[in-house]
């Protein structure tokens, strides 16, 4: 099997944390002058190779938290460490992929060229770029659609291209902001299966934000439930069910009910 760089790391510590969020607080400026308190004293640890869901109603700051982890936003208080390195000093941001809520495919590029886009930030020979992009498309089950333009693809296929674009860098961390929320229920559940299959192969650490309780239980090893105004961690729930998880089984339903009560 293809092994990603992240797999070969022989860590001195047995179970390393891929991400640690340490007392992070964030304020946004607002129109009336009073700064808006978005995040309050967030503490999180995400173990390497695990899947964490950040669950909460809209406006609880979960996307802001994800943006802080990705280094796009700076926290006003506290700090974030990626692979044990404080994010200000962390250099290897290209091993941290970000998948957005929308697919954000460039309409003027074919599927293959859209995947290549992620590799173009660094310099890499064109042939190698093409080969890697092709592999990534194959990984998400889109071989044969290399030359299709976004408008020619269905919502599910576009989402797969976006996933391939996030995976082509062989990230050790994959951050996802409600990545499947725009898909219909059936396609979404297909994408869940795909994501778990790829996670089984590549073993990257995944943090995803969602407001869909079922999605969080089906995918994650543990779920962090956030409360709004200001955004804070209400509870962390470990999901101890073997995969694949079927949303209709009683043990999954029990978790879903428990989490619903917490939101």
């Amino acid at each position: 099997m293809v092994s990603s760089g992240a797999l070969d790391v022989t860590s001195p510590v047995a179970e390393r944390d891929a991400i640690t969020v340490d007392s992070v607080s964030k304020w946004f400026p607002s129109a009336d002058g009073e700064p808006l308190h978005v995040l309050h004293d967030i503490n999180l640890k995400v173990a390497e190779h695990s899947i964490l869901a950040i669950l909460g109603a809209s406006g609880c700051g979960k996307s802001t938290l994800l943006n802080i982890i990705s280094g796009i936003l700076k926290p006003d208080r506290g700090r974030v460490c990626i692979n044990g390195v404080v994010s200000e000093q962390f250099k290897d941001w290209r091993s941290v992929s970000y998948m957005f809520q929308e697919d954000r495919l460039l309409p003027w590029r074919t599927a293959l060229r859209n995947v290549e886009f992620a590799l173009e930030a660094a310099s890499m020979p064109k042939a190698e770029r093409r080969r890697k992009a092709q592999q990534a498309l194959e990984l998400v089950g889109l071989s044969g659609f290399e030359d299709a333009f976004p408008y020619q693809l269905s919502g599910g296929m576009r989402s797969r291209v976006a996933l391939a674009r996030s995976l082509v860098l062989e990230p050790c961390i994959l951050l996802m902001d409600e990545p499947f929320s725009r898909l219909d229920a059936q396609t979404r559940s297909l994408m869940h299966t795909e994501l778990l299959r790829i996670h089984g192969l590549k073993k990257m650490t995944i943090v995803f934000v969602t407001h869909d309780v079922e999605e969080s239980v089906v995918l994650a090893d543990s779920v962090v439930v956030m409360a709004p105004r200001p955004g804070r961690v209400r509870e962390r729930v470990a999901i101890d069910i073997r995969r694949p998880r079927d949303a209709t089984t009683p043990e999954v339903t029990r978790y879903i009910q428990r989490l619903r009560a917490l939101i």
Partner: peptide, 21 residues
């Protein structure tokens, strides 16, 4: 602006953003 943000998360240098987006 979404595409610019995408390029930003990829740490794409500014001149490439001009050229590619």
């Amino acid at each position: 602006a979404d595409f610019i943000e995408l390029a930003h998360t990829l740490r794409m240098p500014h001149h490439k953003v001009m050229w590619k987006i």
